[in-house]
């Protein structure tokens, strides 16, 4: 089953209105890395969601592909100031993975292969605003862009869209992630230019 997220069929907004403050548009898709690129075969891939009570849900690659899929077109905004418009993704909305979880947690720590982490509010993963994305522009997501699957949270700066995602850990306290612990903003809203600690 495939659905289309709102806005999939094009937007009337002029590009200038889609560029957050301090950003420049690019046709490129730069790769920023914090370490060697993990190469995770889909046969070995899984995703776990763990609540603060220790309840764990797990999906294999095949299990994820059987979930409701969604195509979405999104603008990406990197804290290093580039923005890329109309990127085309396919994946599973986070609402599907988080449905009916018994939790009082308000925060999530996203954990990736290679040791990368990022923190964000649980609410920002809900409401059709975040995906586990496995396809980019009609092709399997390349390892350098986070394949086989990455988090996609396009309403926040791109460092929140963790590449090579493997686990979501729901927490009752806010735990700074890889970049958040060295001066980057806990939330990272590009429209409020929340780049660094104190912005």
């Amino acid at each position: 089953m495939t659905s289309f997220s709102p806005g999939f069929r094009g937007r009337a907004r002029p590009l200038a209105d889609r560029l957050p403050p301090g950003q420049y548009p690019t046709e490129a898709f730069p790769v920023l890395s914090t370490g060697p690129t993990p190469h995770v075969p889909t046969a070995a891939w899984d995703l776990t969601v763990t609540t603060e009570h220790g309840e764990t849900r797990r999906w294999t690659w095949d299990g994820m592909m059987e979930l409701p899929q969604q195509d979405t077109v999104q603008d990406l905004h990197c804290v290093t100031r580039w923005s890329r418009f109309d990127t085309r993704w396919r994946g599973v909305p986070l609402d599907v993975f988080l449905e009916d979880l018994e939790t009082a947690a308000e925060h999530v720590v996203v954990e990736s292969h290679g040791g990368y982490t990022t923190n964000l509010p649980l609410a920002d993963l809900l409401g059709g605003r975040a995906w586990i994305a496995h396809t980019y522009d009609g092709h399997p997501l390349a390892p350098e862009h986070g394949g086989p699957a990455r988090l996609l949270v396009p309403h926040l700066y791109l460092w929140k869209s963790a590449k090579w995602v493997r686990a979501l850990r729901l927490t009752t306290t806010n735990e700074p992630g890889f970049w958040e612990s060295v001066g980057y903003h806990d939330y990272g809203d590009p429209w409020r230019e929340q780049r660094t600690w104190g912005d």
Partner: peptide, 19 residues
């Protein structure tokens, strides 16, 4: 960018991060 991550050349363990 967004910062420097220095890793062990043998096992990729993080030695330091600098922003």
């Amino acid at each position: 960018e967004p910062g420097l991550t220095a890793r062990c050349p043998g096992c990729a363990y993080i030695a330091l991060r600098l922003v």
